[in-house]
Amino acid sequence: MLSERTIQIVKSTAPVLQTYGKDITARFYETLFRDHPALLNIFNQTNQKAGRQPTALANTVYAAALHIDQLETLLPVVKQIGHKHRSIGVKAEHYPIVGEYLLRAIKDVLKDDATEDILQAWEEAYGVIASIFIQVEQDMYEEAQNQTGGWEGYRDFYVDKVVRETPEVTSFYVKPSDHQPLATFLPGQYVSVKLSVPHETYTHIRQYSLSDAPGKDYYRITVKRETGIEEGIVSTYLHDQVKEGDILPLSAPAGDFVYEANPEKPVVFISSGIGITPVVSMLKHLVHEHPSQKLTHIHAVRNSEHYALKREMNDLGQSVRLYVAYSQPTVSDYEQNDFQLEGRMNEDVLNQWIEDKDATYYVCGSESFMKSILSSLKALGVKEESVHYEFFGPKMSTV
């Protein structure tokens, strides 16, 4: 329990954190990695260089300050972050280090405005917040390890099959190298892949959705080749270097963007580009487990040449109502007439395609796509609690 004085001091710093939060977290990561470079083996270095992770951490710290007297309201976010931390290997012993460098960063940026009272209040508050994360993540570690076929840390998988889906998307089918049982997963979850890329000083970890239904003797990840020099380090290595028989270390499945069973209610999936990967897992699972459930999938992509897993979606047949929007259809697309919209989705289009607004929604794609879709759904009167979403970018993290 935090004292009332501590709560008031921390809440009073919220406006300052809103203004200087990113400066503080940028300073935090700078000094943390300078003094503890081995942590670069855990953190996504691309997100650091692009400034995305400092922004995510700044948002998290600001939210903690606002809700320090009602930390239970942050539990959904804590669990989301906890999945990421468990997946990449953040441990309890990392939290004191993080706390030390976060307080240093607050002092460095705010200078004399960071009084002893403020620093002491934040030290106390951080201790309480860290203990919540540690407990949540410990439960996740135990669950991942103790389930049938589960494991701790990273487990070696061999690449059983490589399938080129589109010019820029490839699927990798992997099986455990020890030939022991394989843990199941919830449709929509992801795994972390840990790679030692030639000429790179530190290991790289990336999360990829499991793109097939659970219950197989393999996992499948479907990876888009990123075009940026930094962004493409891992995806380029996977596309150009990894072949059948190679070994990929994977952590146990994680993530909370998963189908929440309610067979009585219609489900609408809305995705764009590579955001289709967790959706395919959920749809294939639902068609098998709940064949009578009313399912709709709305997908936006450049054209059929870039439509990853298109054949598998079409194979679902009459079980799923499919709507496809191509932003740049090819001549062949016009000839085949297998799409419903040329251009980008908007509120009017969604209003036509969604028959039952009182459905459960799962939305996945780029950040700009997500913002547009979520805004449109809100305008259509869809309840916020009915919408689940995941954007393919850095997941918020406290460390």
Rank of each mutant, 00 (worst) to 15 (best):
E231W: 02
Q135G: 06
K243Y: 04
L32W: 15
E100G: 04
I373W: 09
L250N: 08
G245D: 03
F43L: 14
N314H: 11
T60W: 01
D212V: 15
D113R: 14
A105K: 11
A379F: 02
L350W: 07
Y62S: 09
R225A: 00
D156H: 04
Y202L: 05
A92I: 07
R311G: 07
T55Q: 12
P198H: 13
V320G: 01
D315S: 12
F185N: 00
P278Y: 13
G228F: 00
S192R: 06
I276L: 15
K84I: 14
A183D: 06
I88E: 10
E137A: 00
L39D: 05
V78N: 01
T46E: 11
V223A: 12
G99L: 12
I7A: 08
F392C: 08
E390P: 00
V162A: 00
D256F: 09
I270A: 10
S327Q: 03
E124R: 07
D156E: 14
G153M: 14
Y259T: 04
V174C: 12
S3D: 14
N47Q: 05
T31E: 14
L57H: 10
L295P: 09
T6P: 06
E231H: 15
F157R: 02
L238P: 02
I118C: 04
H306M: 13
Q53M: 13
T6Q: 00
G215V: 09
A105M: 09
K265D: 08
R311L: 06
L341A: 08
L309I: 03
R5C: 03
G365I: 07
T170E: 03
H388R: 14
A254C: 15
S375A: 14
L316A: 04
L374F: 02
P253D: 12
Y62E: 10
V234H: 08
K284R: 15
T166I: 11
A64M: 15
I229G: 00
K175L: 06
D23A: 15
E124D: 11
Q328T: 09
L40P: 01
L57A: 11
N346M: 08
H83G: 09
Q147R: 15
P181R: 02
V90N: 07
M140V: 03
K111H: 10
E367A: 03
E342Q: 15
L32I: 12
D112N: 13
L102Y: 04
I205Y: 06
P37D: 09
N59A: 12
L350T: 07
D240Y: 02
M396K: 08
G275Y: 02
R27G: 01
L380R: 09
R155Y: 00
Q18S: 07
I205P: 03
I68S: 05
F369W: 10
L195F: 05
V399E: 04
A26C: 06
E30F: 13
I205S: 10
T201V: 13
A50G: 03
A92D: 01
V287I: 01
I373N: 06
A130Y: 06
Y202D: 10
G127E: 01
Q120D: 06
K378L: 12
H299D: 07
D338C: 08
Y141A: 04
Q45D: 05
S211F: 00
V197L: 05
Q45W: 02
G51R: 09
Q8I: 00
S271Y: 11
I129M: 04
S251Q: 10
S304L: 05
